[in-house]
Amino acid sequence: MGGFSLVHWIIVLVVVLLLFGRGRISEIMGDFGKGIKSFKQGIADEETKPAAPPAQIPAPSAEPTAAPGVETAASKTEQK
């Protein structure tokens, strides 16, 4: 009741080949290889790029602004 024997692995391999076909498995493995190659290239590109400085956030203004047509308490006192 332990692991699989060689006969079990051969049967599993035959079933997989019958389900997917030989061409489809090689196609999947080719796509997998391309994905790994692309991943390694992306990691290498990140290492060579200099780190961008963090974006600076503008300081808030002292006077709050309102949308056009909206009256604020400051605009009401200016009108009087």
Rank of each mutant, 00 (worst) to 15 (best):
S61E: 14
I25N: 03
E47K: 04
T48R: 15
F4S: 01
V16T: 02
S38K: 15
V15C: 09
T77E: 15
K76F: 11
P68R: 04
P54G: 07
A55Q: 03
K76C: 05
E27P: 00
E71D: 05
S26T: 03
A52C: 04
S75W: 00
K76N: 10
A73H: 08
G33H: 09
H8D: 10
S75I: 08
M29E: 06
E78F: 11
I28R: 07
A59D: 11
S61K: 15
I10R: 06
P64L: 07
G3I: 01
T72P: 09
G3Q: 06
R24T: 14
E78A: 15
K49F: 01
D31H: 13
K40I: 12
S75M: 10
K40P: 00
I11W: 06
S75K: 04
F32W: 12
K40H: 05
A66E: 12
G3K: 09
A55E: 13
A67Q: 12
G23W: 11
G35H: 09
G35T: 07
E46K: 08
I43P: 02
A66Q: 07
P68D: 09
P58W: 01
Q56D: 02
V7P: 00
I43N: 10
A51I: 02
V70N: 08
T77L: 15
K34A: 15
A66D: 11
I43M: 14
K40G: 09
T77K: 15
H8V: 04
F4E: 01
A74F: 07
G30I: 03
M29H: 06
T65Q: 15
G35R: 13
P50I: 01
F39S: 10
V12P: 00
R24W: 08
E78H: 05
E47Y: 12
I11P: 03
L18E: 02
V15A: 07
T48A: 15
V16R: 09
G21L: 04
E63G: 02
V70P: 06
G35P: 04
I28M: 15
D45F: 09
P68E: 10
I57D: 05
G23Q: 01
L18S: 04
L18Q: 06
V7W: 03
I36Q: 13
E27M: 09
A66R: 06
I10L: 12
P64V: 03
W9M: 01
S75E: 12
G69A: 06
V16Y: 03
K34Y: 11
K80P: 02
V70R: 07
G33F: 11
E71N: 12
K37D: 14
R22Y: 10
V7E: 01
F39T: 10
K80Q: 12
D45W: 01
P64C: 08
F39Y: 13
F20S: 03
F39C: 13
A73L: 15
F4Q: 03
D45C: 04
A55F: 05
Q56K: 14
R22P: 04
I36L: 14
I43L: 14
V12I: 11
I57C: 03
S38E: 14
G3A: 02
E78T: 12
E46F: 11
G30E: 13
K34M: 12
P54F: 02
H8Q: 06
G21M: 07
P68H: 05
K76T: 07
S5Y: 00
A62W: 07
G23T: 03
P60Q: 09
E47N: 06
K49P: 04
P50K: 00
D31E: 14
T48V: 15
L13K: 04
A62P: 02
L13P: 00
E47V: 05
